[in-house]
Amino acid sequence: MTAGLDTPDRRGRTHLDRAGRDLTGNPRVKVRDVTLLSCHWYVLRTTTFDYRHRDGRWSTEQRETYDRGNGATVLLYDTERGTVLLTRQFRYPAYVNGHPDGMLLETAAGLLDQDDPETAIRREAAEETGHTIGEVQHVFDVYMSPGSVTERLHFYAAPYSQGTRTGAGGGVAEEGEDIEVLELPFTEALDLVRTGAIADAKTIMLLQWAALDGPFGK
């Protein structure tokens, strides 16, 4: 009996080796086998599949996929004051891969869990920044690291003000979150992208969107 296969894992999941076996959207891909490697919190699998190349030949390939679920992120902005609301928190994967202290400046974000993207991002904005946002704008959906991570991230933007603040923010302590909330002039945030002080991809994408087509665009 293996957790995640025939018995529930720590999150109550079973049959985790079935993902992808019924895919039919691409006739050049035939999934042969899926092996569960880990399901400690997120899910790591190795998939073996046959792939038909453009010249017609078939080859057998293996790929590892890391499934952490889908997520959503939101840029909170105030056009009257020319500011954006960001967070700063410790990210161990960045720390272990060369970031000086692992403290990343980011837009509010989180996993969908069982919610739809808009519901999830309202939840995350309230938990992380303390603001209960009103109308949100859907910007785009992006596969952030399609070579190995299955996650699709839903991008949003929403205005904030002193009137939308309903809590302290800072994240959920029971989940180990320790999040600092920072309000920055939008122009300063763009400068931090240029200098590399903002090194988080989703944050850079939303700030650049805001400058080109969004609330701070010409």
Rank of each mutant, 00 (worst) to 15 (best):
R68T: 15
Y42N: 06
L37D: 06
A210C: 02
T119N: 12
Q137M: 13
A211I: 03
V84C: 01
L105V: 14
H15L: 14
T129G: 02
R21I: 11
T24W: 15
E175P: 03
I121V: 11
A120R: 00
T65C: 03
D78Y: 03
C39P: 09
H99Y: 09
Q89W: 07
L36C: 12
A197N: 10
D22F: 12
G56W: 08
N70F: 05
Y51N: 09
S38E: 08
G170D: 03
R57Q: 15
R54E: 15
T79F: 03
D78C: 06
K30Y: 10
A189K: 05
D78N: 12
D141R: 04
L212E: 14
T119H: 11
V43A: 00
A210I: 04
R45M: 02
G214F: 01
E135R: 15
A94I: 08
D9R: 01
L111W: 14
T129Y: 01
D101A: 09
G134M: 05
L36V: 09
P117F: 00
L104Y: 03
E61N: 13
L23G: 12
I198M: 07
F49P: 03
N26W: 11
F216W: 09
L206Y: 00
E127W: 06
F49N: 02
V193T: 05
E61L: 11
R91Y: 12
L44I: 06
A3L: 08
T60Y: 03
V29F: 04
D17A: 11
T83H: 01
G12S: 10
W209M: 06
M1P: 08
L105W: 06
Y66R: 14
R52I: 15
S38M: 04
V84S: 01
S148D: 14
N70L: 02
D17F: 05
K218Q: 12
G56K: 02
D55P: 07
G170C: 05
I198T: 09
D213S: 15
L182G: 10
T187D: 07
G217W: 04
G130E: 04
F155I: 06
Q62N: 09
G71M: 03
I133C: 00
A3V: 11
Y92I: 15
E118H: 05
V172C: 02
F186Q: 05
A72Y: 08
G98C: 03
T119M: 07
H131P: 00
T79S: 10
E127Q: 15
